[in-house]
């Protein structure tokens, strides 16, 4: 039996109040096992990003609990939470991944330096080498392409050897070659280092790299695929849900 790196229990996220009230997450309960690759899919506005932010401790859910590595996030203070994030969690966002005044190498070593140990230069270079950017170590983000910036962010997620890497549409703006590079890197994290990856995507082809696909709609998990995941299967499932009659007025659990 595999251990659960991240566990979500009855997660609710509500924004605004009154007429402007939006329920972004409506009682999500699931978990991500160590050494697995999960893709989170669903229509725009279905709460995917919110799910990721809550799971990573970047946002506080209105209700429910998040457990990472056996530690409940709501028990942690701001500093402990930050430290947990620094040591155990990696991020790859869709955009704005890097600090613009730092070079690629400095961006990669940033989490470690914030934790007050300076990694040896070769570790940084090794991380950049994994993402194929050794020759770009001294470049600043403005001198890198979108895909390269994304790969620097992956290298940064690699260097702390985090238990779990969250990626929000990491390939959203990339062509298929660049996308494949990123996805292979994420896959390698799981296969070679037994790390856990949770990735939000709209692309069935990207989801095909995952071991498991969660489908979100209106803040709920409405479907889940495990095993035999290919782009065609995923696309078919999504199409199926769109044509299916809306699960008329489910009682909100938040």
């Amino acid at each position: 039996m595999t251990t659960q790196t991240v566990t979500l229990q009855g997660l609710c996220a509500v924004y605004g109040a009154g007429a402007r009230r939006v329920t972004a997450l409506d009682g999500v309960t699931t978990s991500f096992a160590g050494g697995t690759f999960t893709a989170v899919m669903g229509p725009s506005g279905s709460g995917k990003s919110t799910l990721l932010h809550c799971a990573a401790g970047l946002d506080k859910p209105t209700a429910g609990t998040v457990t990472i590595d056996g530690r409940r996030l709501d028990d942690l203070g701001e500093d402990e939470l930050t430290r947990l994030r620094r040591d155990r969690i990696g991020f790859v966002f869709q955009a704005f991944n890097l600090v613009s005044s730092l070079t690629a190498a400095e961006n990669v070593e940033l989490p470690l330096r914030l934790a007050r140990h300076r990694p040896p230069a070769r570790d940084v270079l090794a991380a950049l080498d994994t993402v194929g950017l050794t020759d770009r170590a001294g470049h600043r983000p403005s001198e890198l392409s979108g895909g390269e910036q994304q790969r620097v962010a992956v290298a940064r997620a690699l260097i702390t050897r985090p238990a779990v890497v969250f990626a929000d549409e990491p390939t959203g703006a990339l062509d298929s070659t660049a996308s494949q590079q990123i996805l292979r890197l994420l896959r390698a994290l799981v296969d070679d280092h037994r790390q856990t990856v949770v990735m939000v995507t709209h692309d069935p082809a990207a989801a095909a790299y995952a071991d498991r696909v969660l489908l979100l709609a209106d803040g709920r998990i409405v479907d889940e695929l495990t095993g035999g995941i290919t782009a065609t299967v995923v696309a078919a499932r999504i199409a199926e849900r769109e044509t299916a009659p809306a699960g008329s007025a489910v009682e909100s659990s938040c």
């Binding site: 970047l58 701001e78 500093d79 930050t82 430290r83 994030r85 620094r86 040591d87 991020f91 704005f96 991944n97 890097l98 600090v99 613009s100 005044s101 940033l110 989490p111 914030l114 934790a115 940064r156």
Partner: peptide, 14 residues
């Protein structure tokens, strides 16, 4: 945005 990013990758408020 940059400060938020720093916080996200592990900088404490202090």
């Amino acid at each position: 945005r940059e400060l938020g990013l720093l916080r996200a990758v592990g900088a404490t408020p202090r």
